[in-house]
């Protein structure tokens, strides 16, 4: 089991954050720390725009950072579950 940092970009809409947080509980994963901000500094997030071929406006999406302790298999499963949420644009591990 290793400590992982997850980086999640999601729509800044009511109810979006709680879906991600709720998923951890539903699937039996633990959250150790959590931080969320609206994305203002757009140039840092160009990779999201390039990856998904979209344009993001200021404050339109949020950046959620979560740390959790899981093994590799579970990590992949968590990321796939998070990515499956309709309001999530991208979820990945920060190495």
């Amino acid at each position: 089991m290793i400590r992982r940092k997850l980086s999640i970009i999601l729509e800044n809409k009511p109810g979006a954050l709680v879906r991600v947080v709720g998923l951890f509980h539903q699937r039996g994963y633990n959250i150790e720390s959590l931080h969320v901000d609206p994305v203002i500094e757009l140039k840092k997030y160009k990779y999201v725009e390039d990856n998904l071929n979209i344009k993001i406006a200021e404050g339109e999406v949020s950046h959620l950072k979560i740390t959790t302790t899981v093994n590799d298999n579970l990590l992949r499963q968590i990321l796939r579950q998070i990515n499956k949420l309709i309001d999530v644009l991208m979820a990945e591990e920060i190495k």
Binding site: N73, R76, Q77, R80, Q81, N83, K84
Partner: peptide, 8 residues
């Protein structure tokens, strides 16, 4: 069709 169903 569901990524999260594979290798779960």
């Amino acid at each position: 069709v569901d990524y999260s169903s594979v290798s779960k």
